[in-house]
Design a binder for these strands. Structure first.
Lengths: 348, 348
DNA sequence: TTGAAAGCGCTAACAT
DNA sequence: ATGTTAGCGCTTTCAA
């Protein structure tokens, strides 16, 4: 790598002291206008840039945040990343992006690697393994070292830190309400990770709504697909539709929503004529499905943006034991063509 | 932020000199085994981690690479990111991820921000705006400063640097060949960014194949959808199918492939019975389409992995004017259900 | 075998 | 208005 221009070089070249150069470049009032101009002009001409590591070392601030997510290929995480990126960029922060691949061991490695002054704080959605085993000590360690963390999506309630989350139970409750309002009477629930707290909450909201609206709660039409590859979804779901009179389905992700649509169509149902589908996560699949799928939007970008704002605020206030906040992002039903329309759409 | 443990602290605590601690922690042979053990034990107990910025300042190496992509929401870029991430992680590198949002100005900003010692090198796919206007001077500036760059996907042939690319013309050529082999005789071509070099090459390969296989080349069935929102794709494509006897289509991306499938189905075609589709980019949409779509895989993860390896190699060899390499990633046809099957599948 | 000192690039308190 | 110096945390040369 080519040698970079430093203030020392400039000082020597212009026959002034290093500190004069430093002050001039920082536009200090204690430097004469003329020398300032001279120095600034030189710096500009030769494209001087203050060395990042020297500054970070001095300031004990890197203006860099770490984003730790389970998997960038999942649209929701890419959306969250996008939200974070926008805010970070606006506020002059860089992002170091890391992927846990749903492995606790990888998370530990990453936290270890980054808690050495590389970054000022973390935005994290824990790995599946971590969430299921509730192994949060590595997060706690990092918190104890004084790093601010903002958790999102899969949130350990055991950890005392800032959080950005959605109301999963409310989201499914609203989805059931909409299905009921558009005429569904036998609503199924399909999940893909029933050990995840968020999945449990989603199911809870579903059950609550069934009760509230006096709809039948039938275990045969509550299916969990954990451990089943998405290629097998259709096969796995066929019996449920064959053996039950289902007219509405809620799924905890898009791929499952698509699968159930295909199965229903194969069995002769018409969507949304006599079969409605609402899927969690307003991603790219729903928009391209046939018919386009009504979804529960978790507003990934908004989540990311909020998380980034919260984290950067914490970093910059830099106080010992702050009052941690939990921000709630409202979910929305994004109406498309897998559900009938209903005029009164103000679920709250 | 809490104060971190430094070698100075350890030195004081154990009543040895700073340099002894440094050497002990680096397992230097010039330190007595007993003192080494003592120091290492202490460091371990109190979770000492060498300060990243101090090391980077000293070594003029950050073990960090920048990834600059147009948009993380596009699956292909998320795939490339994934490939980069895996290799980088393996080789002990961090990744700073930046998004240009297809804007040249954002690219310039980002390069400016990162070329100050934050990172050791770049992996870049230029923004649309940049590619179309062939405005590459900001990349050249960074190269001139001595930063290694690996370009992928959209490649400026004007720039002298390492590159990882696919053979776009060969890819479409093979796609046409497969369609011909499975009985298609009137093959359409739909693109979405006809100003992009890669799109031009794809079209060239298509035309070349038509010629080679003596298939009709009809301008009415070569459509470009630049500037048209994906929601309008179906409407925009309907006339072409209505007014022509088309039995095969190649599209330059997945969303367009899905759209043409829907239009064809609406017009009564059966896929792949009398209508075949091959789309560029083996992403998530193709797998969930009805029918599942045959695609041209660009092997995003492989591209990313190769780019990362190449970049890190350049960083670590650190020589003035290396012989830049251009690596070619082979594309593949991923056979699904939007094309008929054909036994002899060895296109080369 | 251990330690003192210089230096990476920068800032800032403290002279001059 | 400008310069000297110490120090951020670390490595490394040189001296003891």
């Amino acid at each position: 790598m080519k040698k970079k221009l430093t203030i020392k070089d400039i000082a020597k070249e212009l026959s002034v002291s290093i500190s004069t150069v430093s002050k001039a470049l920082n536009d200090s009032h204690e430097i004469a206008e003329t020398t300032k101009k001279r120095i600034q002009a030189y710096a500009k001409e030769f494209n001087y840039k203050p060395n990042f590591n020297a500054l970070s070392l001095k300031n004990k601030k890197t203006k860099t945040i770490a984003v730790l997510i389970p998997n960038m290929l999942k649209y929701i995480y890419a959306q969250v990343f996008n939200g974070i990126e926008q805010v970070a960029n606006e506020l002059g922060y860089k992002i170091i992006t890391c992927v846990s691949n749903e492995k606790t061991s990888k998370e530990i490695e990453i936290l270890e690697m980054l808690s050495n002054g590389s970054i000022d704080g973390f935005i994290i959605s824990p790995a599946l393994e971590t969430s299921i085993n509730k192994e949060y000590s590595h997060f706690q360690d990092v918190l104890d070292e004084g790093f601010p963390i903002v958790m999102f999506d899969r949130i350990p309630k055991e950890l005392d830190c800032d959080k950005v989350m959605i109301k999963d139970h409310k989201a499914t409750f609203n989805a059931v309400e909409h299905l009921k309002n558009t005429g569904c009477t036998n609503i199924a629930f399909i999940s893909t990770n029933n050990k995840l707290t968020s999945t449990k909450k989603r199911k809870k909201g579903y059950l609550k709504a069934l009760e509230e609206f006096k709809l039948p709660a039938n275990k045969d039409i509550m299916v969990d697909l954990t451990e089943i590859n998405y290629k097998e979804y259709e096969r796995a779901l066929t019996p449920m539709l064959e053996n039950n009179q289902i007219d509405g389905v809620i799924t905890t992700n898009e791929a499952t929503g698509i699968a159930i649509q295909k199965v229903a169509q194969k069995l002769g149902y018409s969507i949304p004529g006599n079969f409605s589908v609402i899927a969690f996560s307003n991603g790219i699949l729903a928009r391209h499905a046939s018919p386009q799928m009504t979804t529960i939007s978790q507003h990934g970008e908004k989540m990311g943006a909020k998380a980034a704002k919260l984290l950067i605020q914490r970093i910059e206030e830099d106080i010992e034991n702050p009052d941690y906040e939990t921000k709630i992002i409202k979910t929305d039903l994004v109406m498309r063509n897998s559900t009938k329309s209903f005029l009164k759409l103000n679920y709250k």
